[in-house]
């Protein structure tokens, strides 16, 4: 009887252990995934082909933009998050084209495609020795603003290439559900 119950306990332990192995085993997507180059806000994160330095984050309900000479105000279902960054190429001219915002629970927000007409957004061509500023603009759920991570890579499929991972740190969420310091309207016409 003792032996039998010991066996059952052993088997259960094995099941739990195997479940752990099964879910924690890296698969193809993980093996050939991007290699992170980590850093914090205001750090200079050095990847293989480019360096990036995130200067500041701003949150806004609306964005004021200039489209072909006409003023336009863009709203969003969540909140606009605008990150000002500086890029520099390392050994070779390169094009940085992909950025996304990963929230604290892993939801990943790609850079918005609604401002494709605007200058200073990705994709940005950078040359060695000539740093360049750019804006990364996201639409995110307000609950994904806190402790988010900014992911920046040259190409969409950054297989085994470096990807900058910048942790953006804590952001307080105010009573109205917006990130602290969020403005109503942010003017994109202001120079970088």
């Amino acid at each position: 009887m003792m032996r039998k119950s010991a066996n059952i306990v052993l088997l259960l332990l094995a099941v739990v252990f195997c479940y752990g192995l099964q879910i924690s085993k890296p698969h193809y997507g993980d093996l050939i995934g991007p290699i992170p180059a980590r850093g914090k806000l205001a750090d200079t994160v050095v990847g293989r082909a480019f360096e990036v330095h995130a200067e500041k984050i701003e949150f806004a309900r609306k964005l004021k933009v200039d489209q072909f000479g006409r003023q336009k105000v863009l709203t969003t279902g969540g909140v606009w998050a605008v990150v000002t960054v500086a890029f520099a190429a390392r050994a070779e001219s390169t094009v940085v084209s992909v950025a996304s915002w990963r929230g604290p629970t892993g939801l990943t927000y790609d850079q918005t495609e609604r401002l494709s007409f605007m200058n200073g957004l990705l994709p940005v061509a950078v040359d060695p020795g000539l740093p360049r500023k750019a804006r990364l603009i996201f639409e995110v759920r307000p609950d994904q603003a806190n402790n988010a991570t900014l992911l920046i890579s040259e190409k969409l499929v950054a297989a085994l290439d470096s990807q900058a991972e910048i942790s953006l740190g804590p952001v307080t969420i105010t009573a109205d559900g917006l990130p602290g310091g969020a403005v109503d309207t942010l003017d994109m016409a202001e120079p970088l």
């Binding site: 863009l74 969003t76 279902g77 790609d110 918005t112 495609e113 609604r114 639409e139 759920r141």
Partner: peptide, 18 residues
């Protein structure tokens, strides 16, 4: 089309109804 600003087939983001 996104009705908000007539953007043609943009990406939609997690958990945000459009």
């Amino acid at each position: 089309v996104l009705t908000r600003d007539s953007t043609m087939s943009p990406e939609l983001h997690p958990g945000m109804p459009e």
